[in-house]
Amino acid sequence: MSSASVSLDSNRPRAAAPTTRKVRRRRQWWPYGYMAPVLIVLGVVFGYSFVEVVHYSFYAGSIGSLVWVGTANYRELATDPQFIHSMFNNFKLLFTVPIVTVLALAIALMINTAFRGVRQYRAILFLPYILPATAMGLSFSYLLQGNGVLDALLTKLHVGFLIHDWLGSPSWVMFSIGGVIVWQQLGFGVVVFSAALLAVPAETVEAARIDGANWWVVQRRILIPQIRRIIEFFVILQAIIVLSSVFTYVYVLTGGGPAYSSSVMEFYIYQNGFENGSIGIASAGAVVLLVIASVFIALYLWVRIRAAKDTR
């Protein structure tokens, strides 16, 4: 078997360590066969869709009767207050990113020692992250509705002035949706940061302690800088999530209401494409979303590749 002998390659590529010496090696053909199935599926789901979504964004009309309209869809988006508002709502949700990050980091630092129940607490905090947003959104819709459970609790606690129609008031609704997002993402952050903190060498912390650093200084000068890369990465990931994966919360909690005030880009695309049948507008909206998301995806790639280089 000729391929068997060439495979005895001590220069097998490690994480992102390509191309230096392998150029001299004979190219193999079998890997293409092994990669073919995913290439086909990725080609259809991503490749085809990327091309077609741009294509459809220059057309108007519904399935079967599409007409070329040039950039009219984009011009319409730019002047459609509903789209602008939806985009703005996605940006508003970015407020959850620092909240989740700071809270998760604080909790992770707090439980960064062995004490009774630490694993159970972590397991409980992580649970919301795995639960379906559809079902939990239903639960929250009853908790947060006007005169709902939260309002009843606020009355009992004698802070009745805080009572709101959390989902029914245009000025509060994005905060409420953001609150549910924080509820679901927090445990993820705690677990991610906890794992990163565990990986910080104990000697580093010990050395600082011997030099007389107190608890607060150890956290701020030693631990947080040590896990800086993970924090950066987490922040970018959360930003991508609130920009492009919050449809379920909006659909279940408010249906975009009241009167479009909680619509986000995904919801706008869904409504135009599949409730109003404007394929072109929906596609143009999707392209705008992709362009915005790609800024964050580029950041995310940069952080990821840099991290891979660090660990090499």
Partner: peptide
């Protein structure tokens, strides 16, 4: 294996992980 483009495939996957599914929805529906 040693095939040209495998590092490219790996890196594209990292980028694809972050693509919002809604962006693919209209073409996939059609």
């Amino acid at each position: 294996g040693r095939a040209k483009g495998r590092e490219t495939l790996f890196r594209s996957n990292i980028a694809l992980m972050a693509i919002p599914p809604v962006a693919l929805l209209v073409p996939m529906y059609m």
